[in-house]
Amino acid sequence: MLTSNLEKIERFAAKVWRIHSKEDPINQLSFNEYDYLKVIQLAPEPIRLTDLAVEMEVTKPSATNMVQRLERKGLVQRKMCTEDSRAKRIELTEKAIIGLQEESHVYGIMSKGLEKKLSREELEQLNLLLTKALK
């Protein structure tokens, strides 16, 4: 039953995305590219390539290739690391920031859809359970 419900959540999300998302660079990304952007976005400061590779659980050459791909798409940029002149830090470009903001809007629409179907207590319970399960 859980497997079936997770599939239904994925279909619900896909439907909301099709209806409400605009044509932007984030929509055209592979899941892997998107995952890299989210890790970079959630880092407290521009992230070092080594740390990005660790967070993504990939080799440093794999992370380098992905960062280069995202750079070509204009979604990330590298800047010098002040602590280590040999290292570079990766940060999102304005183009990526705007695309990820649009994505947050779509998740807000999904949330409102769930709010219409669940009571306040059920929503709180769902949120607690998801928080626990996703730690």
Rank of each mutant, 00 (worst) to 15 (best):
P25I: 00
R72E: 15
K38R: 11
L42K: 13
T50N: 13
A133Y: 03
D24C: 15
D35S: 10
V58C: 13
K95G: 10
V106S: 06
N127T: 09
K112H: 09
L29E: 00
L118V: 00
L29G: 02
L70Y: 02
R48I: 04
D35M: 02
I90T: 01
N5T: 13
E57V: 14
L37T: 01
A96K: 07
K79D: 13
A43D: 03
E102G: 12
V54A: 15
K135W: 06
H20N: 09
P44Q: 01
S85C: 12
N5L: 15
R78G: 08
M56L: 14
M110D: 01
K112W: 01
K117I: 03
F12W: 03
E55W: 04
E103C: 08
M110A: 03
Y34D: 02
K117F: 00
S30E: 01
S111Q: 13
E115P: 05
I90Y: 04
R11K: 11
P44L: 05
Y34V: 00
S85E: 15
R89K: 13
N65C: 09
L29N: 00
L75G: 03
R89V: 10
E55Q: 11
T82F: 14
L129H: 06
P25D: 02
L29I: 00
Y107H: 13
D24I: 04
R89I: 06
L6M: 09
K117E: 11
I109C: 01
L134W: 06
E10L: 14
D24L: 09
H20F: 15
R120I: 05
E91F: 07
T93N: 07
E94C: 04
Y34S: 08
A96N: 12
L6R: 12
L52F: 04
E23I: 06
Q125L: 09
L29Y: 02
N65S: 15
S119D: 01
F12G: 10
S111V: 03
L70D: 05
G74M: 04
S104P: 12
Y36L: 03
F12D: 07
E10V: 09
E94Q: 13
S21L: 04
E23D: 14
T50A: 09
I19Y: 15
E7R: 13
I26S: 06
L129C: 05
Q77T: 14
Y34L: 06
T3G: 12
E71F: 06
V54K: 15
R86N: 15
E57W: 08
L6A: 12
K95T: 14
M110W: 01
K8E: 12
K79W: 00
V16G: 10
A43Y: 04
K117G: 07
Q77V: 14
